[in-house]
């Protein structure tokens, strides 16, 4: 699973629209992909052997969050959240619409302070049928305040 932003630089201004796309390893959708022959092109060689012990996708959570780092206890805030079921993901992959676009808020801005740092990221959390969880995140800057004043 991976996330990619469509812009060249990972820096945005408040009110901008953040556009990106996510992709999921095809073998995780294999049990569904095999039902549709036109999608077999996604399956890499040798991957079919792994299907003996299927570990397919149960769902995916995509969120746009800010979180704090530093001396204080971590705080987290969610600006955007969407949960996709396995069927949604299969449809998205089939239609090649694994894109997302989110309008960014006015605040809080990314900040590198002395006691606290405030960071933004796109986070994707993938749940598999075996109960495993894979989390990946892609940081980006919101605003231009990137250090303590």
């Amino acid at each position: 699973m991976s996330i990619r932003l469509l812009s060249l630089q990972p820096c945005f201004e408040p009110g901008d629209v953040l556009e990106g796309e996510y992709s999921i390893a095809p073998f995780l959708l294999l049990d569904r992909v095999q039902r549709s022959s036109n999608l077999l092109a996604y399956v890499p060689r040798g991957v079919a052997a792994k299907n003996n012990a299927p570990n397919s996708v149960q769902g995916l959570e995509l969120s746009l969050i800010w979180y704090t780092e530093g001396k204080g206890t971590e705080d987290i805030g969610v600006h955007y959240f969407e949960r996709f079921s396995a069927n949604d993901l299969y449809q998205n992959v089939a239609n090649r619409t694994c894109n997302f676009a989110v309008k960014l808020p006015l605040s809080p801005l990314s900040y590198e302070g002395y006691l606290m740092k405030l960071r933004w990221c796109v986070r994707a959390r993938l749940f598999t049928t075996k109960g495993n969880e894979v989390c990946t995140q892609l940081p980006f800057y919101l605003g231009q305040v990137t250090r303590e004043v």
Binding site: D75, G77, G113, M116, V149
Partner: peptide, 16 residues
């Protein structure tokens, strides 16, 4: 107010 000022911020455990 300085141009590079961080805005006021208040969360559960951190604040500016």
């Amino acid at each position: 107010v300085p141009g590079y000022a961080m805005h006021s911020f208040q969360s559960a455990h951190n604040a500016i």
